[in-house]
Design a protein around this nucleic acid. Structure first.
Length: 308
DNA sequence: GGACAGGGTACAT
DNA sequence: ATGTACCCTGTC
């Protein structure tokens, strides 16, 4: 991916967006809920529902600027209408939650396009966030149509179900999907073939929508909850992964619980916006773990692998 | 350079 | 309800 000179000064074509309460653009885009954002000079570039978008925020809490022609799309995607203070007020008042929240003041849960979100999380099982991003990028660059260009980076649309359904397993394995290639291919074929109508999920009650999602190969309870929360706006659904399970067992309950039990516990304990609370806890835990590991050597350059 | 774990799921007991 | 294989990569 190249970048550098050639970024047209976007300031004249940007529009200011006002969030309901705090907002931290960089944190929100890189908190492990979306995987398609590129850092470019002065901001972030990505494609939402086929539209190339440039987003900028000088500092957390500062004004949010978005591509003028897509301001309404950006506002919706970034969920700037979420009343963050009201949501935070429903979180349990515990030391762990307070600490995570003070770290994640302006973190929002995005409204992601359904298909892209579903695929991203099918790709996510047993994988690190950096790797999920890599798969996402491969899918876009190899199978998506170019949607624009920003700061020398060509932006590609996320390939739709029909496009992926037309591929074969080796092509998907080539994107780093491993055994998930089979799941993704079959899921794409069911969606493209009309066996599951994604657009109908929006209006279904949560349990029915979850059952429909879980009928797809590669989609279990956790990933279904990710899609419900991150794409369908069901902010009370809690994806319980290894991180959240760890946090719950460390800081919320000492009782030994299975994963399903933990999820039931979490949805009650974390309140009506449990999914939101989960994301705050998840992001805080991930960043503090990273700091604990990397903190020793600061910004010292990593050892190169050149001589091996 | 090898071991380890990573935003789980499907399948068999 | 629990145990295990699964593909592959970033990281130490």
């Amino acid at each position: 991916m190249s970048r550098g000179a050639g970024l047209p000064d976007p300031s004249e074509t940007l529009e200011a967006l006002a969030p309901e309460g705090a907002f931290d653009l960089a944190m929100t885009l890189h908190s492990g809920q979306a995987f398609g954002w590129h850092p470019v000079a002065g901001g972030h570039a990505g494609v939402v529902s086929g539209t190339a978008l440039f987003l900028r925020q000088e500092k957390p809490g500062g004004p949010v600027l978005a591509t003028k022609t897509a301001a309404a799309l950006a506002r919706h995607y970034l969920a700037l209408d979420h009343d963050l203070a009201a949501i935070h007020a429903t979180f349990p008042d515990t030391p762990r939650m307070r600490e995570a929240l003070s770290f994640c003041r302006g973190l929002r849960i995005l409204r992601q396009p359904l298909w892209e979100c579903l695929v991203s999380f099918i790709a996510s099982s047993q994988k690190q966030v950096a790797h999920i991003r890599q798969i996402h990028r491969h899918l876009c660059e190899r199978f998506g149509r170019p949607a624009g260009c920003c700061g020398g980076v060509v932006l590609y649309e996320f390939p739709g179900p029909e496009r992926i359904a037309a591929l074969d397993e080796p092509a998907l394995r080539g994107c780093g999907l491993g055994y998930r290639a089979k799941h993704l291919l079959e899921t794409a074929r069911r969606v493209a073939g009309g066996a599951l109508d994604l657009s109908a999920l929006e209006s279904l009650p949560t349990p029915e929508a979850r059952d429909a999602l879980m009928s797809l190969p590669g989609v279990g309870r956790k990933i279904a909850n990710c899609v419900l929360c991150f794409a369908l706006g069901r902010l009370g659904e809690v994806p319980v992964d290894v991180w959240v399970a760890r946090i719950l067992r460390e800081s919320f309950t000492r009782r030994k619980m299975s994963l399903p039990q933990l999820e039931r516990y979490a949805s009650k304990r974390l309140g009506p916006f449990a999914g939101y609370a989960q994301q705050v806890l998840f992001h805080h835990a991930r960043i503090t773990a990273r700091l604990a590991r990397g903190g020793q050597r600061g910004r010292e350059p990593r050892k190169t692998l050149a001589q091996s």
